[in-house]
Design a protein around this nucleic acid. Sequence first.
DNA 1: GCTTCGCATGGAA
DNA 2: GTTCCATGCGAAG
Length: 791
Amino acid sequence: MSSPSSAPVAAPAAKICFNAQCKESIADHIAPRRKGWRLRSGEIAELCDRCSSAFEQGTFCETFHSNDSGWRNCETCGKRVHCGCIASAQSYGFLDAGGIECIPCPRKSLATASNQISSSLMFMQQHVPERRDSPAKTWRSMANPLSGQWRQASHMWNMTMQSDLQQRLSYEFDRPSSIEKLAPGGRHSIVTHEKKFEPERKITTDLNNISQDKYIHGNAGENDPMSARKSVSTDPCSTSSIVNFEAKPNSSIKLQQSPVTKENSSILISLSASFPSSNGVKDPMKLSSNQSPVQITTPLSKQFYPQRMNEAELQVQMRNGRTRVDAYPRTQLLPRYWPRITNQELQQISGDPQSSITPLFEKMLSASDAGRIGRLVLPKKCAEAYFPTISQPEGLPLKVQDASGKDWIFQFRFWPNNNSRMYVLEGVTPCIQAMQLQAGDTVTFSRIDPEGKLVMGFRKASSSSNEQDPETHKSSTDISPPPEDQITSLVQKDGSTSKLLQVPSKRKAKALGLKSNCLRIENEEPMEFKLTWEEAQMLLCPAPNSSPSIVVIEGLEFEEYEEAPVLGKRAYLTSDQAGSSCSSAQELSLEHIADMVSCKSGVSKKRKAKAKGDNVEVSDGLDTLANLAILGYSENHQSSQPTTRHPRHKPGCTCIVCIQPPSGKGPKHKPHCTCNVCLTVKRRFRTLELRREKRQSEKESEMPGKQQSPTLPPEVLPQPGSMDAASTGPIDEVATQKVTKMNVDAVVDEASEHRTTSASPLKTPQIDLNIQPEREEETLVQHQTVSLVPY
DNA sequence: GCTTCGCATGGAA
DNA sequence: GTTCCATGCGAAG
């Protein structure tokens, strides 16, 4: 350290220590200047010896800023880190799951940590009552699917003891309200952590936090050998007991003796550790929609339903002769049930920024789930882990909120099955229909805290198709967060003329019902669905029950739809009852068309019953396939939330759909209107016109007298005057109107972007915005006789 | 005859 | 071998 005695001899060479609270003079001709932190200017702060030493030793802020605000604790080692000044700005990093971590932490030995975890858990295991049904299966991370860090860490935990411990500790684990309720004032709330470094402080936290911490930093046992301190409190509301696992600073787990042996008592176990919340407000594993990145509570907990579970149920949680805690390994959910909900979905569901949402599980709908029976088979472990305990087969009604905030009442029940139970949610048909779900789609169950509300979200097959097959989690050590944006990026990078989507064949095939004739994918290899843009366009039809509003632009009328177009209906047309291919709209009967249009909810049961044949099954599968062409459909498509946003489009999109106000709202368009909507429509129409002319001229020059596409054999080419290549017969006007009504943008948007962009002043008396751009030459000709726009 | 309910069955994990 | 669960199927309404 420098001292005042080292003051500069020559004044011009003297400098002042950059530390404002020091201001020691530095004489560079006596001793080289010591470097400190990097300044915003890019230079390095020059410090005196004393300050520099403190900085190098990491005690600078402790010395000079101890009373300042901004102190936080490293999520890993618990060390205090000052986050409120530039001097320490590079001494810590933000964790994905929230909180901060001092830089040296990740450098610590992982192997050491792993060993210590083993020993710790072994020790704990010895003190936990034996389970009769403790499976000797490898525990797989149930942890936050968005936390790659934790998932990687937990993946190293392939130990039975972990599994067992996890099962024991999971019960009531992340249920702050219940914990607080059961042990009022006894411990810190999970949700409200304060960040102070208190050696013996007890903070309920998640096992995953601790395990993660141990794994990453490996200092758990180094500085603080495991010590046990019994801390048992009796649940005031039931016979449940609370077992606290406490930890000193820098230790991860301190074993508490498990006191619970009563057959009919429940165990409420929590872990106490000195790893305070990262954000100082909420549990780091909790999600708050206003947090970014999104943090999710690990789906370990047994959901508590104070509003439903009476005391008797709490006390009598035996099932099949087993106690509740011994019932089943609640946390050993199969990977396919791991919630892989995306940030967007979570935030959409959460709504209230003050609430945190805990993804519980998800399930891909089977054919029977999505069928008419109205029974959604629940994975047993999920049902027992996250739903209320039911002792009678009749079960109880369960209120579930969907993503749009609508409440649904399902009957949560079970029936005996092979000395076991089969859990179902009954009465889900309306909800599934409202969500337009089908086999292959995924429903997600989450819980919103603190109210404990069950929320059911969904993800269309299009959104999940690119997600990593959960089965791969078994072997993969590199578990990455859910590819929430994969779909988008996929399409964006292949957005020219085709959408490439991959479907995990195994899962898909299973979800669609191997026993049935639903779309069955035999190949283990990922199946690629390639849709040309034209094909995708042909899948579009107006949303059911949506009525267009007419917008007049330059004397032309356009139909505007509030709801996004429905995709996948082309698939319905591809097979008739006889199984023959039908690719032309005019071959449809009116009934088919009506079925198609009323796909949302207007299909009567009888009609659906009649459609039980291959036709519908094929359509189901192909509908799913067709839906792959959409992005974010499930997220944005909420019939209860009117929007003009096209499902493929993202915030900030300036396309015609996204920039126009909802139908019936906003200013009326006049022929010379110069609003964005009108300008866009005009520009794109001109583009189409120009392209049509260009192609016509090309055809005439290259193939005079021949009106067919060079890529198609003559036998499949449209006859003169036909609507398009797929339309070879007379056109049912009603059918045409229904089939071809679609959002303006859905048709012309990509046409203008993927094709010529030069403008043309050409106009035609009628603009058919329902044309297929590849066929616009024929379509526009057809316009002379077929108008889809009501006058 | 249709729908719903409850259970059984059997393939898959 | 056990358990789970998708689905079939018969009985009842």
